[in-house]
């Protein structure tokens, strides 16, 4: 019994019984996960695809089959394109910002100077907190009446700049983005800190002896050795950036006047505020396609890097 698994496949007959006894353990170990995953991942995903061809309002029987109507509406939907534009800004700045800040902080703490643990703990702290807390804290920072930012600007004589950062369509997206970069930097920082452990100090010293300055050492010696880590972080930030929801939803809810609307907040509103389950499913599939493309590009890059 116990050795059936390792037994070589001898007998000529290969029936159901043999199949079962050979693979039984594997099936049983896998079964609970497969059942749960099929019910709450695979089935809902195909259901979403189906819903995207209906005009269901989320109540009662699933609505009429409307063919490609949702997709046609989507192409003409200015709000969607506006949201995707915000996603694009978010992804670019929200990736570059933490990458640069995280690398800078990791370099500063590379040699584990005195106070290393204190600095690392504080830089990483926002990472363990809920986005709701980050959003409320930063909502206070930006508050037009008593916010830290405006008070600070007033104190150094720049009161002309102060404003309701989140209530102003021209600044709201960037204000939320700064909060997000602030929260994300700690993650990038610790991953870089781990990556720097495998960067060869001998190479750096050799480069110094050869007369390379600090910038050249960073650009030609350190960063090439971190390229794998950079690819991983970039991919995680990119995929996270396309589906960003929490911090925007809590800080601005997509407003004012849709100036911080991204595809995830738009999908949420269509689904649970407008009750347009069909159209919302269509929007969510766009998000999936973008994530898939981003992941595939990432995997390609990684394979190329590995060669």
């Amino acid at each position: 019994m116990a050795q059936l698994v390792t037994q070589p496949r001898s007998g000529a007959r290969y029936g159901v019984g043999r199949h079962w006894s050979r693979y039984r353990a594997g099936y049983l170990f896998l079964a609970p996960s497969v059942i749960l995953y099929a019910m709450f991942m695979i089935y809902p995903f195909f259901q979403s695809i189906y819903l995207s061809f209906t005009d269901w309002n989320g109540v009662g029987e699933i609505g009429d089959f409307v063919g490609l109507q949702n997709y046609r509406e989507m192409i003409r939907d200015d709000l969607l394109w506006q949201s995707l534009g915000h996603n694009a800004i978010w992804v670019v700045l929200g990736t570059i910002g933490p990458l640069i800040l995280g690398l800078a902080l990791a370099m500063l703490l590379w040699r584990q100077p005195k106070g290393f643990t204190l600095f690392r703990t504080v830089y990483f702290l926002p990472q363990v907190l809920s986005p709701v807390i980050i959003a409320i804290v930063w909502g206070w920072v930006y508050n037009p009446v008593f916010g830290l930012l405006n008070e600070g600007l007033d104190a150094i004589g720049l009161e002309t700049i102060s404003r309701g950062w989140l209530g102003d369509s021209s600044t709201a997206l960037y204000a939320v983005l700064v909060a997000a970069i602030w929260a994300e930097t700690g993650f990038v920082f610790v991953v870089f800190l781990a990556g720097l452990q495998s960067v060869s100090r001998d190479l750096l010293e050799a480069a110094t002896l050869d007369g390379a300055n600090a910038w050249q050492r960073l650009k030609d010696v350190t960063i090439p050795q971190l390229s794998n880590v950079i690819t991983v972080i970039t991919a995680l930030l990119l995929i996270g950036g396309f589906s960003v929801f929490d911090i925007i939803f809590v800080m601005t809810g997509g407003g004012p006047n849709h100036s911080t609307e991204v595809i995830a907040t738009y999908t949420y509103t269509e689904a649970f505020v407008q009750n347009r389950a069909g159209y919302s499913a269509t929007l969510s599939l766009i998000l999936t396609v973008i994530s898939l493309v981003a992941s595939v590009v990432f995997i390609r890059f990684r394979e190329r890097g590995a060669q």
Partner: peptide
């Protein structure tokens, strides 16, 4: 499943 964002399955899961 790693590449499918939660938003793409949340509506059917809700009704399920």
């Amino acid at each position: 499943g790693l590449m499918v964002p939660f938003q793409s399955v949340m509506i059917p899961i809700y009704y399920f």
